[in-house]
Design a protein around this nucleic acid. Structure first.
Length: 565
DNA sequence: TCTAAGTGCGCG
DNA sequence: AAAGCGCGCACTTAGA
């Protein structure tokens, strides 16, 4: 078994070049059509880390050709991390404009999305440029004050890039029939020309209550005027404010909004556009959020209503293993701050119950409110009122987030546990602050500047926690992916072809949402998958936080489970 | 007729 | 209208 790093890029002649960087470095060239076979051969030959410009551009074709790779290095994503990383002391030219700082190619419809060599991204893709960039990146990491952590982050980010493509390719097993059944039950039958019957009926009830048969329910300004005419003096048309009023129009209006939301966001049109072959294939965007969380593009993958998860159904002979982490962010905070008191409160399954047991607050609801307030920067209301009690009981954890907030308010940058750095303060932000600090500044300027400083403080406060939680989740995913790949395949008669050639015969990740995963697995491997999910969570905790005693308990379920709890 | 901004709501 | 973070999407209106 040879361990090697192989850089993949284009040649001037438009072929694909594979350049080995190891002891037995060698270069070879193949036509684009033969890339998958060349990668497969090298992958089977030994332990390889594949270095390429953009996983989202290269990997879909490999998967479609039946080729999975174990390890990768995504030059675009790693560049984005290192470009801003505060701990890097020598950037080796990484911070100058080289084309690698281009944004990801905007996802587009149709076949061009994952076309190899799509030049829209602006990323240099020649193999020479890729080799040079890889050397810059490894050198920059080596110069970091915490090279191990940064290297881990970059490897985890790259593993995430592989997983994002794999999730798209495999898709979420989605029962069109179950989805349609739910739509008909909630909305009534689909009607070609107009709205489903139930929506029409509900709208009629609302209009009757508003004493206006022509009232517009979809235009916020006009609806607001209609409400005012019947004495409902609301300032917005949002559900929470409507619910505070007692009027015959309120209940049907809230019902109308709920039905319309289902119809427009996840109705038949969504089903037609996003579900093929009983698979929902969202486009995941690794690091699409500044904190390092993933975003999604199209299909609203990260906003699927929980009520709709009844449509998530395993293929025949397969099942689903679903797991989410209980209170990931406060656990991560406890470990980052080395706050043993908070870690002890977290030692049971329910961190909030643990906080109550330690006497900080009186109820679980208060504990949750206070903890969220601490991580989001609440200043007023019940959440703000509870914060001093949390500060007394968990001073180290609270100091970590308070420090992050102060740094942000002062215009500084903060870092996650592994070294992802928050964005620098923008030019307009700085201008506002310096304007307000001028002796001749007006009270209005000062107020605006203070508010903007506090806004930024809340962002950096949350950045350290949300970003580190995202790192933990990446580590969890990456470790789980490797464990799943080691489980045995089922025979071809048991295959789930819609999951594609790489995954149709083995357990595979099917969905990921910040702190939650779904694995689609042949029935006989469900218990092994559940073990792998738990072991990878424990492994992720050790990888990030070493021996610090913090648990990451999972709510884990095997089988068709639509909703939580 | 196009785009940008506002509103509201789904998810963590 | 959120108080208190991070997103994406659908719909509307205002403005070019």
């Amino acid at each position: 078994m040879a361990s090697d790093t192989v850089v993949v890029g284009r040649t001037a002649a438009g072929r694909m070049a594979l350049v080995g960087l190891g002891d037995h470095s060698a270069a070879s060239e193949v036509d684009t059509a033969a890339l998958a076979a060349a990668v497969a051969a090298r992958e089977n030959d030994g332990d390889v880390r594949w270095v390429w410009a953009d996983t989202a551009a290269v990997y879909p074709r490999l998967l479609d050709a039946g080729v999975r790779v174990a390890r990768a290095w995504d030059l675009r994503l790693v560049h984005a991390i290192l470009h801003h990383a505060r701990t890097v002391t020598d950037d080796h030219g990484l911070r100058s404009s080289t084309g690698w700082d281009a944004d990801a190619a905007a996802p587009v419809d149709g076949d061009t999305l994952f076309d190899l060599g799509d030049a829209a991204s602006g990323i240099p893709e020649t193999v020479e440029a890729a080799v040079a960039e890889y050397h810059r990146q490894t050198a920059a990491i080596a110069s970091s004050e915490a090279p191990g952590a940064l290297r881990l982050l970059c490897a985890a980010e790259s593993a995430g890039a592989l997983i994002a493509v794999e999730l798209h390719t495999a898709g979420v097993p989605w029962s069109r029939a179950a989805h349609e059944h739910l739509l008909e039950r909630e909305l009534g039958a689909r009607r070609g020309g107009g709205l489903p019957a139930r929506i029409d009926q509900t709208a009629a009830v609302v209009r009757a209550a508003l004493d206006d048969p022509a009232a517009s329910l979809d235009s916020q300004p006009r609806l607001l005027r209609s409400l005012h005419r019947v004495g409902l003096m609301v300032q917005s048309t949002s559900r929470w404010e409507l619910a505070e009023h007692d009027h015959p129009a309120v209940a049907p209006l809230i019902a109308y909004k709920k039905l319309m939301r289902l119809y427009t966001a996840n109705g038949w049109a969504w089903l037609d556009e996003w579900v093929r072959d009983d698979r929902f294939r969202p486009v995941y965007v690794p690091a699409g959020v500044v904190t390092g969380r993933w975003a999604s593009s199209g299909g609203g993958a990260l906003q699927i209503p929980r009520s709709l998860r009844t449509a998530v159904r395993a293929d025949p002979g397969w099942t689903l293993v679903t797991a989410d982490v209980a209170q990931l962010e406060p656990r991560v905070l406890a470990a980052m701050a080395r706050d043993t008191a908070l870690a002890e409160a977290a030692s049971g399954r329910d961190l909030y119950a643990g906080i109550v047991e330690r006497g900080a607050v009186a109820s679980r609801a208060e504990a949750k409110l206070a903890m969220l307030g601490a991580m989001y920067g609440a200043t007023t209301g019940e959440s703000g009122r509870l914060l001093p009690r949390l500060r007394r009981t968990f001073p180290r954890a609270m100091q970590l987030v308070d420090d992050a907030a102060r740094t942000g308010e002062d215009g500084g940058v903060v870092q996650t546990w592994l070294g992802r750095t928050s964005p620098a303060a923008g030019e307009s932000w700085r201008a506002l602050q310096s304007l307000a600090s001028d002796a001749a500044a007006s009270g209005v300027d000062e107020t605006r500047a203070r508010r903007s400083a506090r806004d930024r403080g809340r962002f950096t406060r949350n950045f350290v926690v949300q970003g580190t939680a995202a790192e933990w989740a990446l580590a969890w995913l990456a470790d789980l992916r490797a464990r799943l790949a080691a489980l045995p395949e089922v025979d071809a008669t048991r295959a789930a072809p819609a999951s594609g050639p790489v995954f149709q015969r083995r357990p595979h990740l099917a969905f990921f949402l910040h702190d939650e995963i779904v694995v689609h697995t042949p029935l006989e491997h469900a218990d092994a998958v559940a073990d792998a999910v738990r072991e990878s969570a424990a492994s992720a905790g050790r990888l990030l936080f070493g021996t610090f005693p913090i648990d990451f308990p999972l709510d884990l379920r095997i089988g068709e489970t639509a909703e939580k709890g």
